[in-house]
Amino acid sequence: MIPSKPHRAGHIAVIGRPNVGKSTLVNALVGAKVSIVSNRPQTTRHRLLGIATFPEGQLVLVDTPGLHRDQGRSSASAMHRWMNRAARGALEGVDAALLVVQAGRWDEEDGAAWQLLHQAGVPVVLVVNQVDRLKDKAALLPFLASATEGREFASVHPVSALKRTGLEALVGALLPLLPEQPAPYGEDEITDRSQRFLAAELLREQLMRQLGAELPYATTVEIERFEEDGALSRIGAVIWVEREGQKAIVIGKGGTRLREIGTKARQQMERLFDRKVFLETWVRVREGWSDDEAALRAFGYEEPGMGNRE
């Protein structure tokens, strides 16, 4: 009788510069949408756990905001500084890390992320994402050689998180890096965050997607009410902006844009929560909230190292 492989489980930080597909990768590994995505940098603002369970073990993936070059306190907003702290704080207590980069591109921010992981002293796996977008496939091998030169990685994996290719080999390489221990979470758990938190994120995702460059970072969402009424969830959400003109942009002519944002967010909530949702939204103004540390805390932006359970 062949002895079974030991069960392994542990925490893995997912690190990289903005817009390389970290959240898409986490969602693909988990097999469910736990982290919001858009084509705008800085979509991910909060650190959260995505829990991927397999027969051989459990990956607890720490999804993080994208790392930015530190430009100094005077030139970076409180939001910018907070996201960098959250990304760096994700390395506390992890067993391994994923450095996610875009296929064909390595810049100073990728180098800074590598240095951060190298100094953390944990095994680092290089994930070269978006290989499906690489027009010249012959350029992949030279890029891999350049990215790994002078840098030590536990393994290197070209993948497409969007198309879910290359993920089986990635999981197979990650599990041996983790300690032998029982799974810390149940096999039906996919994140450490509450439905209340996820509802706010799904609404913010639609703001990022539909407003695009008009209003990329001046919005946040606060859930004022989350009640379960039989098979129905009743959710009241406030969309905060920084100026009256931004409020008009979110609402749109005759309220059409706000209704469209709310409808798509509600549909995403119903899909994730597997229940009917009644969603009400309001838009309010709080000047300068993104550069106000107290406002960030009031809106649920926790300090790195704080527990995520709500």
Rank of each mutant, 00 (worst) to 15 (best):
E109A: 11
A86H: 01
D110A: 10
V127F: 01
A90T: 13
A112E: 14
G93I: 07
E92I: 12
A86I: 06
V94C: 02
H80M: 13
Q115G: 14
W106N: 05
A76V: 13
A78E: 08
D107K: 03
L116D: 06
D95S: 07
P123N: 03
M79C: 10
Q115E: 15
N84M: 14
V100M: 09
E108Y: 01
M83Q: 14
V100N: 01
V122I: 15
S77C: 06
V124D: 07
A103D: 08
Q102R: 15
R85A: 14
A96S: 06
R81K: 12
W106H: 10
G89S: 01
G93M: 06
A113Q: 08
V94D: 00
G111I: 15
A120G: 04
H118S: 15
V94R: 02
G93Y: 03
E109Y: 06
A103G: 09
Q102M: 15
Q115R: 14
M79K: 08
A86L: 05
G104L: 11
A120L: 07
Q115W: 11
V122Y: 09
V122C: 11
R88D: 03
W82N: 14
A97C: 12
A87W: 02
L116Q: 08
A97D: 07
V122E: 09
A96W: 00
L91A: 00
V100P: 05
E109P: 09
L116N: 01
R88S: 11
V124F: 05
D110F: 07
A87C: 06
L117M: 05
V94G: 01
R81Y: 06
A78I: 07
V127W: 02
E108F: 03
M79H: 08
V124Y: 05
A87Q: 00
V125D: 00
A78Q: 02
A78R: 00
S77Q: 11
D110H: 10
L99N: 00
M83I: 11
L91Q: 02
H118K: 14
L126A: 00
L116E: 10
G93D: 02
P123H: 02
G89N: 05
A86V: 11
V100T: 09
A76E: 15
A78W: 04
R105V: 12
E109W: 06
